[in-house]
């Protein structure tokens, strides 16, 4: 068996407002191994995105621990958490969240720029990635000059730019038409496998979930494996 990459242990997440308290995640346990792809499905509001935010160190759990390569993330301060996100995690969301003023190439190499990578190396890698997703002719186009599918491809390249161990994808094809969604799904799975990455994916799409090695259903704050 490959190495344990991410372990969520007894995770709980509670959102409190003036009137009520909602327990979104309760005693959730999930282990993700290097090189595997894991899909999380569940109804809207079941806490899928919250789970990804916790796994990606974007939000802190109300209880429980998150271990990355055996290291408890609780020990990380803001600076280290930023570095953790930058070097070890690639994010893909339903919206592409590309930066409007930056070209496709610039959007892709931003994570490497933050990581102080040498310019020539990062530009080369960004071009290679954009070439892989068929956007070599769109390097200097701004997001408003790209189609929805092209934007999402750029977002995938950005997620892979720093060679992260873990790709976290939240409904990556949710905003695309059926045909484009299928193309992007295939591309994502193909790239993750080619680059030997670990994928943690949240999706409504059963078809996309079946492309992953393991699928879980998130319900009542806990995950349970889905048998094929």
């Amino acid at each position: 068996m490959s190495n344990l990459l991410l372990q969520l242990s007894h995770i709980s997440k509670r959102f409190a407002s003036a009137n009520q308290t909602i327990d979104v995640l309760e005693d959730l346990n999930l282990s993700i191994y290097e090189g595997t792809s894991v899909a999380i499905t569940g109804k809207s509001g079941s806490g899928k995105s919250t789970l990804l935010h916790i796994a990606g160190a974007l939000d802190a759990p109300s209880g429980g621990e998150v271990y990355f390569k055996g290291i408890l993330l609780d020990y990380y301060d803001d600076q280290l958490l930023s570095e953790y996100r930058n070097r070890h995690i690639g994010f893909i969301f339903q919206s592409h969240f590309l930066l409007d003023d930056f070209s496709a190439l610039e959007n892709v190499f931003i994570p490497s720029l933050i990581a102080k990578e040498k310019r020539s190396i990062m530009v080369k890698r960004a071009k290679e990635l954009l070439d892989k997703v068929g956007l070599s002719s769109r390097l200097h186009h701004k997001p408003f000059q790209l189609s929805g599918g092209e934007k999402q491809r750029v977002a995938i390249c950005r997620a892979l730019m720093n060679n992260p161990s873990l790709i976290i994808a939240d409904e990556p094809t949710g905003s695309l038409d059926e045909q484009t969604a299928q193309e992007i799904e295939q591309l994502l799975i193909q790239l993750v496998r080619e680059e030997h990455k670990t994928l943690l994916l949240v999706t409504h799409e059963k078809q996309l979930a079946t492309l992953c090695d393991t699928s879980y259903l998130l319900s009542n704050g806990r995950v349970t494996p889905i048998d094929e």
Partner: peptide, 16 residues
Amino acid sequence: RSSIAMYTLLGADSKT
């Protein structure tokens, strides 16, 4: 504002 949030998500620290 959304760009700042994105930079933070991608690992830029608030000091930078």
